[in-house]
């Protein structure tokens, strides 16, 4: 094992951290917003909307992310009418293709997590809110969603970690994230094991921080559930 090379590699890989963090945060944020909507569609009584949400989740959870990335990047570009329309300026950029694929993917998983959270809100809580005159949007904003988010937080923490890991796949569509730069360095040094170990350590550190943050939020949001040590 060439430790000198590993130490040399470390700062070079950190250059890719920027892209990795951008991809994770943008897609998680946008994905989460849409996921709330999708979860509500999934719980709605309208058969058509329900079916749409179900199909969406079925497709994005049933296929590997790598297929989704390749389909969006290489697949969609094959259609002339897309290349000639205004959306091409979006699909032309690998960066936006990556964001789109990651967002659509996390949206499907997050919506299931949120749905689980919403369904876990006990009927009694909703009933008492209704008895005080709350309904519709207010009921969701003040009662259902806050409780649902707290319930869904641990599962959503896992989803965040999965997303951090998932960004490593965008190196296959010419994006220079941590993994992309690692591959570039390997092409020069021909020592994949050392360099992928360093890259792995960086991902591990990011995920460690994410886990701590989620734990911190869990404790903050439910001080009354904190265990006395």
């Amino acid at each position: 094992m060439n430790y000198e090379l590993m130490i040399e590699t470390f700062p070079k890989l950190l250059v890719g951290l920027n892209i990795t963090i951008q991809l994770v945060s943008i897609s998680l944020f946008v994905g989460f917003c849409f996921a709330i909507g999708l979860a509500l569609l999934r719980l709605s009584n309208n058969l058509f909307l329900n079916f749409f949400a179900k199909t969406y989740v079925f497709y994005f959870r049933g296929t590997p992310l790598l297929v989704q990335i390749f389909l969006i990047y290489y697949g969609i570009a094959q259609f002339e009418f897309i290349r000639e329309s205004f959306v091409w300026s979006f699909f032309k950029e690998p960066y936006w293709c990556a964001i789109l694929a990651l967002t659509l993917n996390t949206c499907a998983y997050s919506s299931e997590i949120i749905r689980g959270g919403i369904q876990s809100v006990s009927f009694g809580q909703i009933e008492s809110a209704k008895s005080t005159g709350m309904s519709g949007f207010l009921l969701y904003r003040r009662i259902i969603l806050p409780i649902a988010f707290r319930q869904a937080l641990p599962a959503y923490g896992n989803e965040m970690i999965l997303m951090v890991k998932a960004t490593s796949l965008v190196s296959t569509i010419t994006i220079m994230d941590i993994t992309g730069i690692a591959r570039l360095i390997i092409a020069k040094t021909f020592s994949p094991v050392e360099i992928f170990i360093v890259a792995g350590l960086i991902y591990l550190t990011i995920n460690f921080i994410v886990t701590r943050l989620v734990n911190f939020c869990e404790i903050k949001l439910t001080p009354y559930l904190r265990r006395a040590n």
């Binding site: 290489y74 570009a77 094959q78 290349r83 032309k92 690998p94 296959t172 010419t174 570039l184």
Partner: peptide, 18 residues
């Protein structure tokens, strides 16, 4: 510069104008 994994993917992206 953009680096591709295969020559074939490079050719595809050239042909669509990426």
């Amino acid at each position: 510069m953009k680096s591709y994994d295969t020559q074939e993917n490079l050719e595809l992206d050239l042909s669509v104008g990426r």
